[in-house]
Design a binder for these strands. Structure first.
Length: 812
DNA sequence: AGCACGCCGACT
DNA sequence: GTCGGCGTGCTC
């Protein structure tokens, strides 16, 4: 098919180049862009991704590829330009971009292993060894061949490379390279196929008859299905196969990620508003790329609009990608899509196992499904032909990946749509400043849904000024009389209450009674939180937990004052205040046990719970029709973070929580407790008024030239050694400053802030610094940072890690 | 990332 | 004088 003997390959390593390899004749007809290739690289073998063909080697001494592990490409070649764009924009190696986009576990590389030789074994019996040599040989004798990495990355490993080399030359050990295989495979299951009927004259046991019958009736059937009817099926089937009645074979099967069956729905009639929105997009659907911002209050029927648009794409024979925020469970949106589109969708859900994820990936690749719904990473779904991309709750923080390739799936949705030349719809009740700014600039077309479906009124919101209760002691300053009165009323009416506090644990600020010092994490620069349900202090940053009765790290005293409150304490308080009420709590602590989240959510749904206390886990993606009262314990909780987006986040979160009230037939009410009732973020959330928030927040952003009026790139500098991290951060700062002065034309003003110590100076024993650069021009920033990365001293240090965050979301 | 090459201090 | 530290550079 293709006559070019060379291919361009990206390897999954921190390298900027791509590499040219020769395709041997026997692979010539198999190799395709999008496939993995096992390639020799230096003196190792590793996975590369085929980008395309080349007619010559470009002057290099091209090596030949070793293997092609895939039958079909892992992504359509049309996605390669997208990957290249991402690589440039996020300043991240192309091979690693592709690796991030693909299901995990598809990476093969050589692992150097150590094996004990007979000579080594003999030497162990003599006294001719140093203690260290003896230790290595002993470990190998006990555990067999081991990867070299276990030795070199051990605590006391200085000089280990040399020692291993020396021992290898002495033939005490052997160093060999073994290929690490793919960690996941397609699931195959045993099936039986009908071959011939057993003559009636042949005597068979009733069970064997039944089995044979089952196979014959189904033509082919999975062994697991047979087992359900006949527990001894594996044994019987083998016998029957030997007798020639049935034939065993292996078949690839798909694991269903959805536990519960979903009942199909019938599309409801659209409201006039919904219809107008759908028509607006439909009319331009064939005119290529166009981005829309769909803003609509909670309950205005955005999901129905999305589903109609997806249907339109489907009717044109094209696929669709629908992004939803990542939450612990399947969202309401996912469920509704499933009900509408049934088996025509693939769900790429965060809780899928690696195998399930690969299954879904293959279903998409094979064209079995053309609609993909999923969290962040679903933007990389390997769809050949996409007709529309939809991003639900576009403001949600979970679209931003906070490690490795720090991409924002919402932004990539727009980019992918541009590459595919199709429409993209970003929807939210509380749009991000960025997206609304884009709408104001005319980059996005604004679509609005202003009326709630069924004319349900928005919940009534009451503010309670917490300053009134500042000097009160006891529960009143946390659960105010206003709130408890409403809870009481709600209970007597037999309705449900949701209490929201975005902080888990019992006491969030435990203090030593004798010296007044807080209980701090050993590994991080934060106070630990007291958890009463597990009787321990826990660090919410690194997960470190220590027994509750541990002595104060400063003075050794053992009495601790449990200051500060979290959801656990609220739960306890409510149980005391309303002993007759059934109180449940949902946060990461109660939900971490498998199935617990589902159980609690079901309790809320069945109304076997009267009051549910929780963190933002409760605020997102679930629909509780019987909740009529929402209590927000402290609305300004997230307002005081040292981050320019704290107001935006507060507004979004509050509006979202408030929207949980009155989703059913009964009207809802919200009690919002706050120390700063006059702050515009809180005022705007009270009215669910995004425009009010935007118009008041925007001048601040403009005055300080923060996004959306500018772009920023943040360097995160971290390492174990405090002094070295500081020194390195200053060095990166100097490099940056120098390049700004030397290379940046003054027309593209780039401003540097820092380097400064990070908001949390130490997490998990790593000291942290950061450096920020800001400019109205994203291109200018990108060019500067790309230049910076060629400085190996700054970016390839072993001891201090410098990572680049383009368009950072959390600045801490 | 991993591995080789190459240049300077502390040891036989 | 050498052994071995790790800074620098390359891998098609």
């Amino acid at each position: 098919m293709n006559t070019f003997p060379y291919i361009d390959v990206a390897v999954a390593l921190p390298v900027t180049n791509t590499y040219v390899y020769k395709v041997p004749d026997h692979f010539r007809h198999i190799a395709l862009p999008g496939m993995r290739a096992l390639v020799p690289f230096g003196r190792r073998r590793l996975t590369g991704y085929i980008l395309g063909f080349q007619k010559d080697s470009g002057g290099y001494q091209a090596k030949s590829i070793l293997d092609l592990p895939d039958d079909i490409p892992l992504f359509p070649p049309s996605m390669i330009p997208l990957f290249q764009w991402i690589s440039r924009y996020y300043i991240h190696p192309l091979g690693e971009v592709i690796k991030t986009a693909l299901p995990v576990g598809l990476n093969r590389y050589d692992v150097s292993t150590l094996t004990l030789t007979p000579e080594g074994k003999d030497a162990l019996a003599t006294n001719a060894l140093t203690p260290r040599e003896r230790e290595i040989l002993h470990t190998l004798k006990k555990k067999g061949p081991l990867p070299i990495k276990g030795f070199t990355s051990a605590k006391n490993s200085s000089g280990i490379h040399a020692l291993i080399k020396k021992m290898a030359t002495q033939k005490l050990i052997q160093v060999a390279t073994k290929l690490k295989k793919d960690q996941i495979h397609m699931k195959k299951e045993a099936f039986y196929r009908h071959e011939q009927l057993a003559p009636a004259t042949v005597k068979l046991s009733a069970k064997r008859r039944l089995l044979l019958d089952l196979v014959a009736r189904n033509k082919e059937i999975a062994l697991s299905e047979l087992k359900k009817e006949i527990p001894t099926a594996p044994k019987l089937a083998k016998i029957l196969e030997n007798q020639g009645y049935i034939q065993r074979f292996e078949k690839q099967v798909f694991r269903d990620p959805l536990g519960e069956p979903v009942i199909p729905d019938i599309p409801p009639a659209l409201t006039r508003e919904q219809k107008e929105v759908v028509d607006q997009v439909r009319n331009k659907m064939d005119q290529g790329f166009h981005s829309y911002l769909l803003s609509g209050v909670t309950g205005s029927g955005k999901t129905e609009v999305y589903m109609r648009l997806v249907s339109l794409a489907e009717k044109k024979g094209k696929g669709a990608i629908v992004l939803v925020p990542e939450i612990s469970l399947i969202t309401q949106t996912e469920r509704r899509f499933r009900a509408r589109f049934g088996n025509r969708i693939a769900v790429l859900h965060s809780k899928l196992t690696k195998g399930e994820l690969l299954d879904q990936w293959h279903r998409i690749l094979k064209g079995d499904v053309s609609i993909v719904i999923g969290a962040r990473s679903a933007i990389f779904a390997p769809l050949e032909s996409v007709g529309i991309i939809i991003v639900d709750e576009e403001h949600d923080a979970s679209y931003k990946q906070e490690s490795g390739l720090r991409y924002n799936a919402r932004d990539l949705a727009v980019v992918r749509a541009k590459f595919c030349d199709i429409p993209v719809v970003l929807g939210s009740a509380t749009p991000s400043m960025q997206s609304y700014y884009n709408a104001c600039q005319g980059k996005f077309t604004e679509l609005k849904l202003q009326k709630r479906v069924n004319r349900r009124p928005l919940p009534e919101i009451h503010m309670v000024d917490l300053r009134k209760y500042k000097d009160f002691r006891g529960t009143e300053k946390i659960i105010t009389p206003e709130l408890s009165r409403e809870i009481h009323g709600c209970l007597t009416r037999g309705e449900q209450t949701l209490i929201f506090l975005n902080r888990r644990g019992f006491a969030t600020f435990p203090v030593c009674e004798s010296c007044g010092e807080t209980i701090k994490c050993r590994f991080c620069d934060v106070t630990m939180t007291l958890h009463k349900d597990t009787d321990e202090f826990r660090c919410h940053l690194c997960g470190f937990a220590t027994g509750m009765y541990q002595k104060c790290t400063h003075c050794g005293a053992s009495r601790v004052k449990p200051l500060g409150f979290g959801t656990e304490k609220i739960e306890a308080m409510l149980k005391t205040m309303f002993p007759e009420a059934r109180v449940a709590r949902l946060d990461q602590d109660t939900g971490s046990k498998k199935g617990a989240t589902i159980r609690i959510l079901k309790q809320v749904q069945n109304r076997t719970v009267d009051i549910i206390v929780g963190t933002q886990m409760l605020a997102k993606g679930h629909d509780f029709p019987a909740i009529t009262l929402v209590g927000i314990i402290c609305a300004d909780m997230s307002l005081n973070f040292p981050d320019f987006r704290s107001g935006e986040r507060t507004f979004q979160l509050l509006a979202q929580v408030a929207g949980r009230a009155g989703r059913g037939d009964l009207p809802g009410k919200v009690i919002m407790q706050t120390y700063t009732p006059d702050h515009f973020s809180i005022e705007a959330s009270k009215n669910q008024d995004f425009m009010e928030f935007y118009t008041r927040e925007f001048p601040f952003r403009q005055a300080l030239s923060y996004p959306p009026v500018s772009r920023i790139i943040q360097f995160k500098i971290s390492g174990i050694n405090k002094e070295k991290v500081e020194k390195h951060a200053l060095m990166v700062g100097q490099l940056c400053q120098r390049l700004i002065q030397e290379k940046m034309p003054s027309s593209h003003a780039v401003e540097m802030l820092g380097p400064i110590e990070a908001g949390i100076p130490k997490i998990a024993l790593r000291y942290r610094w950061q450096l920020l650069i800001k400019s109205p021009s994203a291109t200018a920033l990108n060019r500067l940072v790309t230049r910076m990365t060629s400085d190996k001293k700054a970016f390839a240090s072993k001891e201090v890690k410098v990572s680049i965050d383009v368009d950072p979301y959390f600045m801490l």
